[in-house]
């Protein structure tokens, strides 16, 4: 992107700082989206400052930037939307988590999605715990009644772990199902 050159050093600093803020706000986007967004903002600043009579560079620039708005505020919906697009295209969990964080303010459905992802992470931790503490991790029953699924420190009398070695494959299956459902739900939300 070609940088706009101002004759007044103070105006140059204001412009450079604004561009830095824009760059910071869009850092989560793909390289192409970052370049496109930055070029568009830069083009707007250039056109707006050039359309005004060349009296006071600083005043004109400040007015332009004020009308554009704070990058942190105005670019948030764009970043959230583009990140959601990237996440649905890639199925990449990192992108999906970032998109959820950015879109969480957009509705309760994203809170549910975040909860499901947290559950998937917990399942992952359970697998590790099963390897370290096999008798304390699993599906616990007492007198044919379901007591718990997970990790327990206390193994009171009559409490038996019923899944044994099957626990890890079952948890992996559950994680896979959760991940698939979550991504599907995410795509449906994106279509709305």
């Amino acid at each position: 992107m070609k940088r706009i050159v101002f004759t007044n050093p103070a105006a140059q600093k204001i412009y450079d700082d604004y561009i830095k803020r824009v760059t910071r706000c869009i850092r989560l986007l793909s390289a192409d989206d970052q370049r496109d967004t930055l070029m568009e903002i830069n083009s707007h600043i250039y056109e707006a400052t050039n359309a005004a009579p060349p009296e006071n560079e600083i005043e004109i620039l400040l007015d332009t930037l004020e009308k554009l708005g704070s990058p942190e505020e105005v670019l948030q919906p764009l970043v959230a939307y583009k990140k959601a697009q990237q996440a649905t295209r890639s199925f990449n969990p990192v992108h999906i988590l970032q998109a959820m964080r950015l879109n969480i303010a957009n509705g309760a459905a994203y809170v549910i999605l975040a909860f499901f992802y947290l559950l998937s992470v917990s399942f992952c931790i359970l697998i590790i715990l099963k390897i370290i503490y096999p008798s304390h991790t699993g599906l616990f029953m007492q007198n044919d009644k379901f007591i718990a699924f997970g990790f327990t420190t206390e193994l009171s009398g009559g409490l038996t772990e019923v899944l044994g070695q099957l626990f890890i494959p079952v948890v992996i299956l559950l994680m896979g199902a959760l991940y698939f459902l979550n991504t599907l739900l995410f795509r449906l939300l994106k279509k709305e």
């Binding site: 967004t37 568009e40 083009s43 707007h44 359309a51 708005g69 990058p71 919906p77 764009l78």
Partner: peptide, 27 residues
């Protein structure tokens, strides 16, 4: 182009639009 579109909106309507919000919408 973006800036020109903002000006057109201003000319034809009385809507006070934060210019930066136009780009997420165009996207």
């Amino acid at each position: 182009y973006g800036y020109e579109l903002v000006q057109e909106i201003k000319i034809h309507t009385t809507l006070e639009v934060a210019e930066g919000t136009l780009y997420p919408l165009l996207n």
